[in-house]
Design a binder for these strands. Sequence first.
DNA 1: CTGAATCCGTCAAGATACTG
DNA 2: CAGTATCTTGACGGATTCAG
Lengths: 161, 161
Amino acid sequence: METVTHFAQEGTLVSDRHTDVPTNAAIAPQPAPPATPLAEVAPDDSNSCQTVNEVLARIGDKWSMQVVMSLGRGPLRFNELRRRIEGISQRMLTRTLRGLERDGLVSRKVTPSVPPRVDYALSTMGMSLRDPVMALGGWAIEHRHAIAMARSAFDDAQEEG
Amino acid sequence: METVTHFAQEGTLVSDRHTDVPTNAAIAPQPAPPATPLAEVAPDDSNSCQTVNEVLARIGDKWSMQVVMSLGRGPLRFNELRRRIEGISQRMLTRTLRGLERDGLVSRKVTPSVPPRVDYALSTMGMSLRDPVMALGGWAIEHRHAIAMARSAFDDAQEEG
DNA sequence: CTGAATCCGTCAAGATACTG
DNA sequence: CAGTATCTTGACGGATTCAG
């Protein structure tokens, strides 16, 4: 799994990719999705855990989810995203967007003008990710207080130990 | 967020906690859960993103989710868990379990016998986490092929660039 | 404006060995 | 069996600088 956690290892993206326009042609319409019947893999066996963990490793990093959520309302430009996320460096935003684009979750559209304009948007698959993530978000919101309480109770028990 | 990503900073858990039995008394029955009405926070504003990201940071690490899923069927002892996860070091398993216990997701029951016996089990809250995670797992299973295809397409486009 | 390239500090993972 | 202690490593992320 660690082979997919990090992206393209810093400096391997040496190419002129930042000037070609229709990069998203490969991800925009997915003509025949393999469509695993979802019953082929029991949802709680270890195989599933593996797959879940890959996704978690993908979106569980510090920024990916914030990017996906920020893009949920509509396309944004690079610096719009940057301002909306507040705290991300442009390097991390670039890396995060590359990773999401690589996995087909985000499409990237370059308008070669001066100044250049790049719009990022969620792909269809990216949009579909919002639902399960919102479910998780609902869980988080419901239990955040219980978690905070358990956490301080645990920490108190540690100190007095 | 980075303040909750890592646990108790390596060596601060210096105490005799590994011999007291009823540690789970603080987390087992949550008498009056604060129960945020879930409409108090819009599910897609940035506040929600923040909370979601905390949860993601908590369970999105390399092992937590596998532990939760492995425990989903029932309690397990330390080495049973270790064998079931395959690849985790005992240190990481210990740390992961500590983190989950701290957040009230996992209960720990020590039987002071020789040899010692420690059973880990999901708390009520831990069980409730399984559903949204399974939803995410479903998404992962559905889209894993599309992701793999997008990924190799992207990588190919890089090399030929 | 939208990045890429580089340097660099920090911290978490993993291996190993030891303890009760 | 169920951990803890210690060390090493390298990935991650930030700041800065340069470029199209």
